[in-house]
Computed example of a mutant assay.
Amino acid sequence: MEIYLKFILIGLAIAMPVGAITVEMTKQGLRNGFRHGWAVGLGGMTIDMSLILAMYFGFASLLSLPYIQIPLWLAGAGFLAYLGYDSIRNAELNITTTDDKIKKSFWRTYRNGLLVAISPGNLIFWISVFGVVLSDSYHSAGKLSFVIAALGVLCGILIHDLGLLTIVSVTRKMMSQKMIQLVSALAGVLLIGFSFYFLYKFILSLWQYFQ
């Protein structure tokens, strides 16, 4: 139980910093309600679970190879730039109120969460920081400890996502459409900012690889 509680806190700490997933989750929650914000979070957690399985079976080291990482930086930059542009372009469109029936596909939003989460920043963070902690748990206390630790982290991320989306849902009811449009456009700017950072990391990684 002590291991589980400790890793719940680690999961919360992992999820707390504002990143591309948090921005997209907040944007979808404001524009389309709790369900679509949750779809982005589920997409992110799907990648998290996949990475845990990769670590468990010893495949995570493949993600640290330069020729795997470098294309991911470029792909991540492209997708985030697209999401940001789409968010700004459609800031005034497709905003549903609490009384409206949402027409947007849940699975399309879930796919966005998946694609945002398959970013080198997220993958490298998991491998370099969380991977070390989980590996230590695996080697010091065995497979059961690893599973408990992994469940604790996922639970911490889940608590963060539900808490964030609850706040977003309450805030959404008090915001006018103009305010939601402004936040959506701002989210688009932030996503484009992340895309420029990814592009910078791609160029830097490419330069270092050929040195």
Rank of each mutant, 00 (worst) to 15 (best):
G11H: 07
G11P: 10
I14S: 13
I14A: 13
A15D: 02
A15G: 06
M16C: 04
K27Q: 08
G37H: 04
G37P: 05
T46S: 07
I47F: 09
A54R: 01
Y56C: 10
Y56M: 14
F59N: 01
W73A: 04
A75W: 09
A77H: 08
L80F: 12
Y82C: 12
D86M: 12
E92M: 05
L93M: 09
D99M: 07
D100S: 13
K103N: 05
S105W: 02
S105F: 00
F106E: 00
F106N: 00
R108P: 02
L114V: 14
L115T: 04
L115D: 12
I118E: 08
I127T: 04
V132F: 15
S135T: 12
Y138D: 08
H139W: 15
V147A: 14
A149P: 00
L154H: 04
C155I: 01
C155D: 05
G156Q: 04
I157R: 01
I167L: 11
V168D: 08
V170Y: 14
R172S: 00
K173W: 00
S176Q: 01
S176M: 02
A185C: 03
L190N: 02
I192M: 15
F194R: 01
F196T: 11
L199Y: 14
L199H: 09
L199G: 14
W207S: 14
Q211T: 03
